[in-house]
Write a protein that binds this DNA or RNA. Structure first.
Length: 582
DNA sequence: TACATACAC
DNA sequence: AATGGTGTATGTA
């Protein structure tokens, strides 16, 4: 099985405190000071001096200042970081032209081919190459990077964190070593397991990957099949080992803008925000030469609760007037809205604006006074009409949109200034398309309110159903497990599941996980207990519960760590030699 | 498809 | 007093 493949070599490389490093490089007088890139509301990066004070990224700036009064704040300069990032990736591309990266400061490289080609496919060779790459980065850029080298992306990423800054960690391509390492690892270290899933797992008394493996049955009945697979495989150190995407091709699937502000209440204020977002979104869509059929409007309340309204239109949208006009429909749908702190507008279901042949593209629309009327009695004011049928929108096959590998990276060439003029038809048709969109929207709103009409148009037999190729896809190892909220299974289902667990376990055929095999009996005897636990878990909905629970967990974890430390001191668990700094 | 949410940088 | 912006993913009805 590919996920067990141990013969490939991945390197995860991560620039140390990237934004801060760029700023310090450009202003060496900062070198000995605590530095935070960001502002009073949010810190994006800090240097290691600031970290000593507990000032970390994603922390509000005012807290940072409290922790460290001398903290030097620097306003982020993203174009500069992007430039540095390009340089970083150019260096890496020598070793793997297909390199994958999320964000500006890190990348995943499959070094296998390079190592084989250079006859260095052995432990020393791998360590040497990582060292060499980091040196090259330092020489060319004056900044340090940390790296992890292992047989798959997930392990490489975990390893890259172990000797930061300016260090690297090599994990032997050896199943026993890998297992030994994973068993002690807290589940939170699995990329994709965040706060929430850590919390849920702790409810099952699962803290380490070892717990995760030993309590696999609980995990199995608690999470979905897919999440179970993800968690247990991850805990065993298994992850993808091959690139998933073609070289240099990234299909960005949505594009959006959002903005946080002081509380607003009035409809006019909402509309004004929407209009600004629409203008900004137009500029982005234009730069990237994309259009989209689905518009998503997002609100965040002061309780940090997020609501979204979305609608898919028969025609592709691209202009601010379209975003405004159709955005208002979404706004009205959500209206009335409690005070909010953030609004966002996102375009998805996208395709390349230049490849519009045979696609319904919405021509420019007008915003009329009628569009600007405040809905009088809440959200209902604007839907009276009709249910007619037919959708007219027959699904075209979508081209993938191709961007450079950096996200939020608008393409540079400016030769698209007249895009707006290209597809314009005569005004009458324009009008018709707008009407079609509006009619479509009204029908949807009607259906939403009064339920679907009596009949649905039947699919003609033999008519090909073309699903958007992009509609669902899997990215990297970052497949996030989800809590399965509503399934306590009936007995036969249970048994089936147990069989599957057994099968999976047999497949693993790993040393050190025999206990894993006996889980089904354990589950049967403990099922009542488990169901109770499950019910308790489902109740944890508000933040305070979560916080209290987290506190308890933290204390437990602390104690556990202390116990572990004792064990280590007494020589019961050795730190695997592969994790000693190089 | 529409919506809610988790997660990552 | 005060917690960002952008994008991707899965779950479910």
């Amino acid at each position: 099985m590919k996920e067990r493949e141990v013969r490939r070599t991945w390197m995860h490389i991560d620039m140390d405190m990237f934004y801060a490093a760029v700023e310090i490089r450009d202003n060496p007088s900062l070198k000995k000071k605590p530095v935070a890139v960001g502002d009073n509301t949010m810190i994006t990066t800090t240097n290691y001096i600031a970290r000593k004070y507990g000032v970390k990224s994603a922390m509000p700036g005012f807290i940072g200042r409290k922790l460290c009064p001398h903290l030097v704040f620097i306003k982020p300069n993203y174009p500069k970081y992007r430039q540095a990032s390009d340089q970083f990736k150019r260096i890496l591309a020598i070793y793997d032209p297909k390199l994958e990266s999320v964000g500006l400061d890190e990348a995943n490289l499959d070094l296998t081919d390079y190592l084989v080609d250079n006859k260095m496919d052995n432990d020393l060779g791998k360590i040497f190459i990582a060292q060499k790459i980091r040196e090259q980065i330092f020489m060319d850029m004056g900044m340090t990077a940390s790296a992890g080298i292992a047989c798959n992306k997930m392990l490489a990423k975990i390893c890259s964190e172990l000797n930061k800054p300016n260090g690297q960690t090599y994990m032997y391509n050896d199943e026993v070593e890998i297992l030994k390492f994973m068993m002690d690892l807290p589940v939170r270290k699995i990329p994709g397991v965040g706060k929430v899933n850590e919390h849920i797992l702790s409810g099952l008394n699962i803290y380490s990957c070892k717990d995760l493996v030993e309590k696999a049955t609980e995990v199995y009945v608690t999470f979905t099949e897919y999440a179970f697979q993800f968690l247990v495989k991850s805990a065993l150190g298994m992850a993808r080992v091959m690139h998933e995407k073609e070289e240099g091709v990234v299909a960005q699937r949505s594009m959006g803008v959002s903005c946080t502000f002081r509380p607003i209440h009035r409809y006019n204020q909402f509309r004004e925000k929407l209009f600004r977002l629409a203008a900004e979104l137009e500029s982005r869509a234009h730069q990237n030469k994309v259009m989209g059929k689905t518009l998503v409007l997002e609100f965040k309340s002061f309780k940090f609760e997020t609501k979204i309204k979305s609608m898919t239109f028969p025609h592709y949208l691209y202009s601010q007037n379209q975003f405004k006009k159709y955005g208002i429909l979404l706004l009205n749908q959500a209206w009335p809205i409690e005070a909010i702190r953030l609004m966002g507008l996102r375009l998805s279901n996208m395709r390349d604006r230049r490849k519009d042949k045979g696609v319904k593209v919405c021509p420019e629309v007008q915003i009329n006074d009628a569009d600007l009327i405040e809905p009088p009695g809440g959200p209902d004011g604007n839907q009276q009409e009709t249910q007619d049928q037919g959708d007219g929108g027959n699904n075209q096959e979508e081209d993938k949109i191709v961007f450079s590998d950096t996200m939020h990276h608008p393409s540079n060439d400016q030769n698209n200034a007249n895009l707006d003029d290209e597809g314009i038809e005569d005004p009458e048709i324009e009008q018709k398309h707008d009407e079609e969109n509006m009619k479509h929207a009204k029908e949807k709103l009607f259906k939403q309110k009064y339920g679907p009409g009596e009949k649905k148009k039947k699919k003609i037999k033999g008519e090909k159903e073309i699903l958007s190729e992009n509609s669902r896809s899997i990215q990297s190892w970052n497949n996030v497990p989800r809590f399965h909220m509503d399934k306590i299974m009936g007995k036969s289902e249970k048994e089936k599941r147990q069989e599957r667990v057994q099968k999976i376990l047999k497949k693993q055929n790993q040393r050190g996980i025999e206990s894993f095999m006996n889980e089904s009996d354990k589950y049967l005897s403990k099922s009542d207990h488990f169901v109770k636990q499950f019910e308790e878990l489902s109740k944890i909905k508000n933040k305070n519960d979560g916080i209290n629970n987290c506190r308890q967990i933290r204390n437990k974890l602390k104690k556990k760590e202390e116990r572990q430390q004792k064990d280590i001191d007494s020589g019961m668990f050795g730190v695997p030699k592969s994790f000693k700094p190089i």
